[in-house]
Design a protein around this nucleic acid. Structure first.
Lengths: 340, 340
DNA sequence: AGCGCAAGTTAAAACGCTTGACCCTCGGGG
DNA sequence: CCCCGAGGGTCAAGCGTTTTAACTTGCGCT
């Protein structure tokens, strides 16, 4: 039952503890012959160093924390799921462990996010789904510990981030709808993230440049969920029957909106065009399949890990990167309906 | 920069290290006055014990590992996501940390799953998405370490598990379709899990008891994904045009199947009824909304944590539990089409 | 006065590893 | 022939806790 420790290996090989440890850490001071002897004994016993002892002694854990927002069933959200997948797969391939944390009140009030770093329990933080109200992020920015905001940012503050290009997204979406002749457009989104706010501003701007009157742009605030999209679409359609297109802040909202439109007995895209954002797997299999702006969330996750490594290695003080996006045209958008 | 340790607290309070440690672990041997003194100092310094040191010394980590299968983008799968959410939220509310592991080749070949337990890096394992081919599970069953199979089982082997009731699910689904007059039914599922196999057997049995000829039951094997459902539906419809209903092994397959049916120019449920399983959020927002067998995945996750605790406390040798299911009727199923 | 005992506290040995300082041995240069 | 330095190893002091056995008191008995 007693686990084999570094001591057992040392005894078997007739060397000291230190030697074994040095071999395990690829220290070049050990001769090739000793190294081989130790390694073969390690293999023979399937020896695995004790992580706790290692971390305690070395004051570093070779692991990182993913901070997800405090939402119910948050791991069931494909948006976060895609990003976490990208993070997890990339980080583990680089030998980093991934820990999960949820940014609930306790986590924030006890400064757990700083404690994780101070106690060296993790080497860095990857923060998902932060909102404009997350004041605690200021402490992080000031702290000099490695962290990256994932698919979010704060204009004007110098914080590390990796994000999709929401500004180009806005232009692509707007132009696509304009090209189809839409001049009465609803927007369905939240106001809790800077990305959504940036998106709205640039979408509005692009629409107006394309000849849409400001009063023909309709806005509905809501949760980034199917339910939020459903209710938002209802609200907009009740008020603005002249509306011919809906731009949703993400694919889930778009799918919720389409559901409501179907319920109402209207057809997408014949009566109303719908465009989403992200291009999660569900977009392709929606009925009708969803036109959307593709954000490579998996890639965003992977790049965030990369950014963290840059910070670990002190190759940069600040990492800010915007990733390209792409319009994916499917069935849910089409020419504006003939005036009825 | 130097973190405050137990030593600092001890010095400040004029007591020994042991006393502080005992206070922190709620040992009743310490007097109320000393306890208060220590605790107030702890609060003052926002002292947090070092997890590594604690785990190393106590040989227990108050944490558990979730093992997910080695699939691409696995965290973006709402099936796993729901379960992980249930696990995470329940475990953290009980003071347990949750670690993520992926059952890839390295993980299995190096016996990492056993090492995690041997080195006490985690106290128990929660295994998701295991398949009939996962031979390594035998080692676990033999090992006497705490683990629970989540929503899977091996008939005949005495392994711990928590699972939805796939047998009742099968009867509910079959009877629902039979009630609507369906007598030519396709099944879309995988063959890699015992739950799916059990489901198939009992679905078949129920259908035959309901008067469906065996040769009018069609089977298509495939991945548990939208794409798998899409292709499976195509395969079935190409071969069996007389088919009027499709039972899918999960909601994602059902949604993929509906997508294919729409592509083919057919209507759900007018031409083909479709029923899914799980009742993930997407089921309600599909077009048409999906009739399905509800498995409370979140609850399954939470119960699995509960089961692990029972094993920790040695209150039972073996934990096997089957959770109730429910038919949720929505729009995707209806009476059989009139013969054409 | 002496004893036993309970309650409260502490000393010290782990836990398994890392790491900087130190030590030995040899070969070569002065 | 001695000294020096490089290469290869080892020593031992941590890292920050837990935990067991042992040590004080003070008190009530006899």
């Amino acid at each position: 039952m007693a686990r084999t420790t570094i001591k057992d290996i040392a005894r078997e090989c007739g060397v000291s503890l230190s030697t074994v440890s040095l071999v395990l850490n690829n220290n070049p001071r050990i001769s090739e012959s000793t190294r081989e002897k130790v390694l073969s004994s390690v293999r023979k016993h399937e020896y695995q160093p004790n992580t706790f002892a290692r971390s305690l002694a070395s004051q570093s854990s070779r692991s990182l924390s993913v901070i997800v927002p405090h939402l119910n069933h948050v791991f069931a959200d494909t948006y976060f799921g895609e990003i976490v997948s990208g993070i997890y797969e990339h980080a583990t391939s680089l030998g980093y462990k991934v820990m999960l944390e949820m940014a609930n009140r306790h986590f924030i009030q006890t400064h757990e996010y700083l404690n994780l770093l101070k106690t060296k329990r993790v080497d860095g933080l990857l923060i998902l789904g932060s909102s404009v109200h997350d004041e605690y992020l200021k402490d992080l920015a000031a702290s000099n510990y490695p962290y990256v905001l994932v698919n979010h940012y704060f204009p004007g503050r110098s914080m590390n981030y990796i994000s999709a290009d929401y500004i180009t997204s806005a232009r692509l979406a707007a132009n696509h709808l304009l090209d189809h002749g839409h001049r009465h457009i609803g927007m369905l989104s939240g106001t809790t993230t800077n990305t959504a706010l940036d998106f709205r501003d640039h979408f509005t701007k692009a629409c107006m440049e394309g000849g849409v009157a400001k009063e023909n742009l309709y806005w509905s605030d809501g949760w980034f969920t199917e339910q939020g999209g459903f209710e938002g679409a209802q609200w907009l359609l009740d008020r603005y029957p002249e509306m011919t297109a809906i731009m949703a802040g993400n694919d889930k909202m778009a799918i919720g909106a389409m559901r409501h439109i179907a319920r109402r007995g209207l057809k997408v895209p014949h009566d109303i065009s719908v465009i989403g954002m992200d291009d999660v797997a569900a977009a392709e299999f929606a009925n009708p399949s969803l036109t959307t702006i593709r954000h490579d969330l998996y890639q965003i996750g992977a790049k965030s890990v990369e950014a963290l490594l840059v910070l670990f290695r002190k190759e940069a003080e600040l990492v800010q990167q915007t990733l390209p996006v792409e319009l994916v045209v499917r069935e849910s958008t089409g020419p504006v309906r003939t005036a009825s």
